[in-house]
C-alpha cells in the first residue's frame, strides 16, 4: 500500500514518463475497468435473449443462434454448422432432434433430410439485439406509467424546490431581520437529518392530508430541502450589496429584486441545485417505497424493485428496465459532467 502511495505522490515534470506515472495509469486503468465494466455488462446483457442469458459461461456480446426459413417448414429452423463424415462442414438447419440423432435439412436443397449425430453439430451464432426485452415490459407491464410518474415527480418537485428554496435563501442572504439566526439554525440543524428519521410521522402527516398513494405524497415532503437553501444562500451572499441597493434606488420592488436581479445572478447555483434535485428525486427510494403501495402511482425505482421481486427469473426484462432507469441520468451526466463535478466539489454536498 505504501508503495502505491509513494508512487502517487511523486511529482515529475513533463517529458519522459516516470515509472510512478505508469503506476498511476495502472490504478486509473483498473478503475476504468471496475467502474465502467459493470455498466457496460448490464447494457450488453440487456440485449440478450432469455436463452442467451442462461448460458454459462456467458458470451460477451449478445449472441443468438441463427435461424433460417426453409421451404416446406412453417417455423424458422435453427442453423447448425455440421461436421460431415467425410470431414467437410456444411451449414444445415435442424428439423427436429430425437435423442442423439438430429434430423437436418440443407436450406439450399429443402427436399432431402439428413440424419446427423447431435455432437457433430455446432450452432451458428450471430449478434442479435433482443429489442423485445425493452418493448415487451413497456407494453405488458406498467413501466410506461412508472416512467411517467417518475418524470412528473422529478419535474414538479424540482420546480417547487427551486422556487421555495431560492425565496428562503434570498430572505436569508439579502436581509437582516429578527429571527434570522434562528431560521439559519433550523436550516443547518436539519441538513443531515434524513427522512429516515421521521418516516413514521411524515407518513402520518401525509395520511392526514389524504395524500397516501398520490404522487404529491412523494413531491411535497422533500420540497423544502435544507441543502438547497444553504447552497443558494452561500452563493447569494457573494452577490455585491451594491447591486441590491442600486436596484432599490431604481425603484425595484423586493419581488423584482429577487426575480430580476438575484435569481439571474444565482444561475450557476440554481443549476447545481436543479441537477441535485433531479438526481435526488429520480433516484429517491425509501420514502416512495413507504408511501406508494399501489402500482399505478409507483415510480420507476419502486417499480423496478418490485419487478425484481416478482420477476426473479425474467432477468431479460429486469436488465432492460434497469437500463431505461439509468439512461436519463447517464444523458444528464454526459452533458453536465464537469459542471456537476465542480458543483459538488465546491459545495461538499450531494
Amino acid at each position: 500500500m505504501t508503495g502505491i502511495l509513494r508512487l502517487l505522490t511523486a511529482r515529475r515534470g513533463a517529458g519522459r514518463l516516470h515509472w510512478t506515472d505508469w503506476a498511476t495509469y495502472a490504478y486509473l486503468g483498473l478503475a476504468v475497468l471496475l467502474m465502467f465494466g459493470p455498466v457496460l455488462w448490464l447494457v450488453l446483457s440487456s440485449f440478450k435473449t432469455p436463452a442467451a442469458l442462461l448460458e454459462f459461461p456467458p458470451s460477451f456480446l449478445p449472441m443468438t443462434q441463427k435461424e433460417v426459413r426453409v421451404e416446406g417448414y412453417p417455423q424458422p429452423l435453427p442453423l447448425f454448422s455440421v461436421t460431415m463424415e467425410d470431414g467437410s462442414t456444411r451449414e444445415l438447419a435442424q428439423v427436429r432432434r430425437v435423442g442423439l440423432i438430429a434430423q437436418m435439412v440443407d436450406p439450399k436443397a429443402p427436399g432431402t433430410t439428413v440424419r446427423v449425430a447431435a455432437d457433430k453439430r455446432q450452432p451458428v451464432r450471430e449478434m442479435a439485439f433482443a429489442v423485445s426485452n425493452y418493448t415487451e415490459p413497456l407494453a405488458k407491464y406498467d413501466f410506461l406509467r412508472f416512467l411517467e410518474n417518475s418524470l412528473f415527480v422529478t419535474l414538479i418537485a424540482t420546480a417547487i424546490t427551486l422556487v421555495i428554496n431560492s425565496m428562503a435563501a434570498y430572505a436569508l442572504s439579502i436581509y437582516e431581520f429578527k429571527g434570522k439566526t434562528l431560521a439559519m439554525l433550523a436550516v443547518i440543524g436539519t441538513l443531515m437529518i434524513p427522512i429516515t428519521i421521521v418516516l413514521v410521522p411524515v407518513y402520518l402527516v401525509v395520511t392526514e392530508m389524504g395524500l397516501v398513494n398520490s404522487l404529491w405524497a412523494v413531491i411535497l415532503p422533500g420540497a423544502a430541502t435544507p441543502t438547497g437553501v444553504f447552497l443558494l444562500r452561500q452563493y447569494m451572499l457573494t452577490i455585491p450589496r451594491d447591486l441590491i441597493e442600486a436596484a432599490r434606488m431604481d425603484k425595484a420592488s423586493e419581488w423584482r429584486i429577487y426575480a430580476r436581479i438575484v435569481m439571474p445572478l444565482s444561475a450557476p447555483a440554481l443549476a447545481v441545485l436543479t441537477i441535485f434535485s433531479i438526481m435526488w428525486r429520480w433516484n429517491d427510494f425509501l420514502w416512495p417505497l413507504a408511501v406508494l403501495t399501489k402500482s399505478e402511482v409507483q415510480t420507476l425505482q419502486i417499480g423496478l424493485n418490485a419487478f425484481q421481486g416478482e420477476l426473479q427469473t425474467q432477468w431479460h426484462y429486469l436488465l432492460a428496465m434497469t437500463v431505461v432507469t439509468l439512461t436519463p441520468v447517464a444523458i444528464v451526466f454526459a452533458f453536465l459532467q464537469r459542471f456537476i463535478a465542480t458543483g459538488i466539489a465546491n459545495t461538499g454536498m450531494k
Binding site: P240, A246, M249, A252, R256, R260, L265
Partner: peptide, 26 residues
C-alpha cells in the same frame, strides 16, 4: 433619487440598454 455607486453596481446579466431601462420599467 438616483445614485452612481463606487463599484458602478451595473447588473451584470443585463445589457447596457436593459441596465438603463430597468428603473423606468419599474
Amino acid at each position: 433619487l438616483a445614485m452612481v455607486f463606487q463599484s458602478y453596481a451595473l447588473y451584470p446579466h443585463m445589457s447596457v440598454y436593459a441596465n438603463m431601462a430597468f428603473a423606468l420599467e419599474n
